[in-house]
Nucleic acid binder design. Sequence first.
RNA 1: GCGAUCGUGGUGAAGUGGUUAACACAUCUGGCUGUGAACCAGACAUUCGUGGUUUCGAUUCCCAUCGUUCGCC
Length: 374
Amino acid sequence: MENFYLEIKHICKQTGARYGILHTPHGDVEIPMFMPVGTLATVKTLSPEEVKQLGSGVILANTYHLHLRPGEEIVSKAGGIHKFMNYDGPILTDSGGFQVFSLMDNRKISEEGVVFKSHLDGSKLEFTPEKVIAIQEKIGADIIMSFDECMPYPVEHEYAKKSVERTLRWAKRGKGAQTRIDQALFGIVQGSDYEDLRQFSATELVKIDFPGYSIGGTSIGEPKDVFIKMVDQSVKYLPADKPRYLMGVGSIDFLLEGIERGVDMFDCVLPTRIARHGALMTSIGRVNIRDAKYKEDFSPLDPNCDCYTCKNYTKAYLRHLYVSEETFGKRLLSIHNVRFLISLMEKARQAIQEDRFGDFKNEVYRSFGNKKGF
RNA sequence: GCGAUCGUGGUGAAGUGGUUAACACAUCUGGCUGUGAACCAGACAUUCGUGGUUUCGAUUCCCAUCGUUCGCC
């Protein structure tokens, strides 16, 4: 794929964090980057124009969910997902591998693939690695994912080994089923927290040769030291010239740890979901806007933030909107949280280029105090 | 004035002669990590209008009293 490649511009001398440009069919974006999640072809409460204004490079959508509603045929008839949702920037679709984890009670895994019981009407849905590629080709994102099993944590080594080997076979089958040449298909490293399995998974995927590699199976409730171990043991075996995508990571500390270890891309529902629930990430720590102490607080959410919400509205007003269950409040809060993480990435890129990412990381940790981050 | 009725937390209310007075809403507080999530969890009546009676034990039965609502004069 000549229209998809990573151009590494600088590696931080202090840490090894990478700064670069990811070239995609729908434009160039800077890494490391945070990608907001828009499962059903919408970043909940935000318009594509707003998402773009926040500085997002890539946004996500989901194969499983779009297959169910509205169905890939309709997305295809609309002219592909970019036209369908009116977003002309790069888009990435997740394969449904995460749903193998999140919808665990309603699915059965076999060598062939996964049979889900639809969470909408209970009907049987057969997902095979080949079918998942076909669906993603119809949806038409710039970056697509291999079908994988995201295992729960913790799991027995015996099960993890079987699962990793199967996910690897699925990756091969998916790659073989690919017909479009304008979509970058990523392989996904699994292996839970077992070093031998992470190594096996990564090195075997690299042999297949993908245009990018994802690190999966993390940030599903494991302790931070385990998470770091998983990332280390995955990145270690990945080629330097290909993009690395750490799936499902969106808390401030996990993002910083990932960047420090040479990860380029991250996605997470965290900023949008917690915003809808009234929790905000700010430069001075977590804010629960519903708290009574903000009733008469006419200061901005985050004095150091340049987002639309912080520039125009007070905490008292945002609290009022939240308590009154006004949709506009959820939108304003989502704008802030997404902008906060994207802005964090911008600062991280700057720090990398100036060879001081390690200092930057420590500064961020310090400004959050010892409070539990996000 | 007479008759009936009902008085339970911030609100609407269930309920029982006997361990922590149901539930809902409101309020307060947490949590959410490749979105089954405008969601989930927890806290919140030392007490059932007030005073007394019966009883081993009363929010529950009884009496009085104050208040409610409705009807009649």
